[in-house]
Design a protein around this nucleic acid. Structure first.
Lengths: 123, 123
DNA sequence: CCTCACCGTCACATCCATGTGAGGGATGCA
DNA sequence: TGCATCCCTCACATGGATGTGACGGTGAGG
């Protein structure tokens, strides 16, 4: 598919699809035209990228963790340098901390909302 | 406490403590000097702010959700306009989505790391 | 009194994700 | 053939969080 369709199907501005490519997050083929040709699977990948960006990860980190998720069983041992492993462990821990923080705060919001709505219906 | 101590205890540059104040996230007292005087409780609040920022929330949103968490039982009904409630519900849902995304990816990283480390020790 | 470490404000700089638009080529249809 | 709609690259702009430094006031200790 071309960039327009991918843009529509992922709700992502074309500008950003090109930006993600520039940052090395996706690598579309090119038609003879020069037009970018995106594989079907890139729909999910783009959504994943957007999710991670929205969760506060920079493209530099996303680029490093994406290859680990490609094929659950096709591990790229070539990339598995000690530094890379350390980076991944760090990032996994940061993600865990983020999850805890978000969960705590979301639960507090839920509690607040319940209290307010309760009060509203009973007053 | 003054800004230096709060900065040290939270690992936050003074610059940012002033910035958070400018954005209305914290509201320190002032000594006769003009020096900012921070309450003990602001240590936790600053850490919470940093956690939420790191998780991708903008200060504008953080400012709105912080009051809901102040006292679990001291609900500020005065702020509970319908728009505010809608905002909170939206933000709660966004947080849930972020949590799901982070959890999925973190688990995939863990799986990858396990596979790599397994392979490493048995080869 | 001097000095040093703290504080204040102000302003400009940087990084990153994103917006916007100009200028031009490709494709397909009236 | 003309026009609309897609695509390309390039480049400049914006907004939010953060860095950095200038310039000056405060206050405790030698």
């Amino acid at each position: 598919m071309r960039i327009g369709e991918l843009s529509e199907r992922t709700g992502t501005p074309r500008r950003l699809l090109r930006y993600y490519e520039e940052q090395g997050l996706i690598l579309p083929d090119r038609c003879a035209n020069g037009y970018r040709a995106y594989d079907e699977r890139l729909v999910d990948r783009v959504l994943q990228i957007r999710g991670l960006l929205d969760a506060g990860l920079p493209t530099r980190i996303i680029k490093q963790i994406l290859p680990c998720l490609d094929k659950p069983r096709l591990i790229h041992f070539s990339d598995a340098t000690p530094e890379m492993i350390a980076t991944l462990e760090d990032e996994r821990d940061r993600m865990t901390r983020r999850i805890e923080c978000l969960t705590r705060n979301r639960d507090a919001i839920s509690e607040y909302l319940e209290a307010v709505l309760d009060n509203h219906t009973t007053s």
